[in-house]
Nucleic acid binder design. Structure first.
Length: 526
DNA sequence: TTAGGGTTAG
């Protein structure tokens, strides 16, 4: 039994935040059959940028929902189209309901329908459900294999995508360009699969796909994220400028992320001089370069172009402008850009709070956060809490920080993640409450990482705690075996306590473990 | 009727 014409179902999950309320309104209008109003709501939605193909989705989905409301039996083609729309609009709820209908109607053997289901589930972040559908399929074609591989890649499971790709190679179905694009894009997330990209590149060359623009951009992205800029530049050199704006944008980002902001700028200027049409992605990437280079004059010129292109409605571009002004030290202009923004979503609010926090105005950052929360205009997520806790940390506000940490669970039902625990530990440690910091580390549901032990070790040096300092340093010897830093800090701690024999032992241990003291200016004694 | 690349907050 399906209830997809029941509007309540659409509203319930979308009560958090302006952006989601807008999405909920869109879905409500759509569900009630008011497609033109749904169009209007969606046209004003900040989520509009989420996919370029949304527009093709409304009418088909609305028609399907209306038909279902009238008790009309859908064909397998219509179910497929409806699932496709669910994937594009990230509507997991309707997708699951359609899945139930598919099972009820006995269409679950259909290859196309199953591929679409895999796509819906992965686009909505449910790779487990997608895998269940995939594993239950009687046979796979290149599209269904690729859907699953791509879904894993897009959900940060590059290692799993690669394993599935290997399974595919063992079958009679051959991977195509799309499969390679999908699997290569998954190789940029985890270091464990970094080296596989080169092997996949070799496959691409052997198969003669090296001129495919999707493959070129994914390979440029891959090599730049592995730090192999020479190969990225070589691949870029094989294309004609203006052939594909995505390749250009990938190259601009590649330069920026590899501390080559000047080259990013040169490329951008070349595009402008040659009247090559740039996209909003280009603006975002070049603003990123301006921030990295702290070149506010160029940043302002790009801002003028943003206005000229009418791109100030795009939340990605607005976010990049805020970050650029903030990095260039002009927090007032960052704030002004935010005030002028037509659509303000959670991410943009977080960008503003971050801008204040990183400009040494932690108290202002917290004030903005408190006001927003009080007015119920904003429902913070984990990232926002990390920003807020960092602001507390940098301003030395231990009690406030503890209060925000507790609010995560009590007010927002958010289980703290490792990043927020790291902030809390650092808060306690910086204030000298090393006992509480250690207690959090012992009791939290995560293994303490190197960041946490380093934070504890630094504070042990600051507050002269030899016992805990020793424990932290020895943990770091295991976690970061080639780093001289924990050895040197522990030596400082020993020296501060007058334990000269221990200082000599640490020096000996460094030699034994083959760790080289390579930090210029480090204040190690002896 | 099924699949693809590049961009935001710490």
């Amino acid at each position: 039994m399906l209830y997809i014409n029941c509007s309540q179902n659409y509203i319930k999950p979308y009560i958090h935040g302006y952006q989601l309320v807008t999405t909920g309104m869109f879905k409500l209008y759509l569900a009630c059959g008011f497609t033109s109003t749904a169009h209007k709501v969606f046209d004003k939605s900040p989520e509009r940028h989420a996919t370029v193909t949304h527009d093709q989705g409304y009418e088909a989905l609305a028609s399907f929902v209306r038909g279902n409301g009238l008790g009309k039996k859908p064909t397998n083609y219509e179910l497929c189209t409806a699932l496709n729309c669910c994937a594009k609009t990230r509507n997991s709820q309707l997708g699951s309901q359609i899945h139930a209908k598919i099972l009820h109607m006995g269409f679950h053997h259909n290859l196309y329908i199953n591929s679409s289901l895999v796509n819906v589930y992965t686009k909505c972040g449910s790779t487990g459900d997608a895998k269940k559908v995939f594993d239950g399929m009687e046979f796979h074609d290149e599209v269904s294999w690729t859907s699953m591989i791509c879904g894993l890649s897009q959900n940060g499971q590059g290692g799993e995508a690669l394993c599935l790709f290997k399974e595919m190679l063992a079958t009679r179905v051959r991977p195509n360009c799309v499969t390679y694009v999908s699997v290569i894009s998954g190789c940029t997330e985890q270091e464990s699969v970094f080296k596989c990209g080169e092997l996949l590149h070799a496959h691409v060359i052997i198969l003669g796909h090296e001129s495919n623009s999707f493959l070129i951009s994914s390979l440029i992205d891959y090599y730049s994220k592995c730090g192999k800029m020479d190969i990225a530049v070589m691949l870029f050199g094989s294309c004609k400028p203006g052939d594909d704006v995505v390749i250009l944008n990938t190259m601009i980002s590649a330069y920026t992320h590899n501390q080559q902001g000047g080259d990013a700028f040169k490329l951008f200027r070349k595009l402008r001089d040659e009247n090559i049409i740039v996209s909003e992605h280009t603006l975002t990437s070049i603003l990123d370069a301006c921030g990295a280079l702290t070149v506010i004059q160029q940043g302002k010129q790009v801002h003028a172009l943003v206005t000229k292109m009418g791109s100030d409605h795009n939340t990605f571009v607005v976010g990049a402008l805020i970050e650029m002004y903030s990095k260039c030290g002009n927090i007032d202009e960052a704030s002004h850009v935010f005030d002028q923004a037509v659509y303000k979503n959670n991410i943009l609010w977080t960008s503003l709070i971050t801008a204040y926090a990183q400009s040494g105005r932690g108290l202002d950052a917290l004030k903005i956060f408190d006001n927003l929360v009080m007015q119920k205009r904003f429902y913070p997520d984990h990232v926002c809490f990390t920003v807020v806790l960092t602001a507390c940390k940098n301003s030395g506000l231990l009690d406030k920080g503890i209060g925000y940490f507790k609010k995560m669970t009590s007010d927002y039902n958010l289980a703290p993640e490792i990043d927020q625990y790291a902030c809390l530990i650092d808060l306690y440690a910086r204030k000298g409450d090393l006992k509480s910091a250690k207690k959090v580390m012992d009791e939290m549901p995560f293994y303490a990482n190197a960041v946490m032990w380093s934070s504890l070790l630094s504070s042990c040096k600051e507050y002269g705690n030899v016992e805990l300092g020793r424990e932290a340093a020895y943990k770091l010897f295991e976690l970061e075996p080639s780093s001289p830093v924990p050895y040197l800090i522990l030596a400082d701690i020993y020296a501060g306590a007058g334990l000269w024999n221990e200082v000599h032992n640490i020096r000996k241990l460094m030699n034994e473990n083959g760790v080289r003291k390579s930090l210029a200016g480090w204040s190690c004694v002896g």
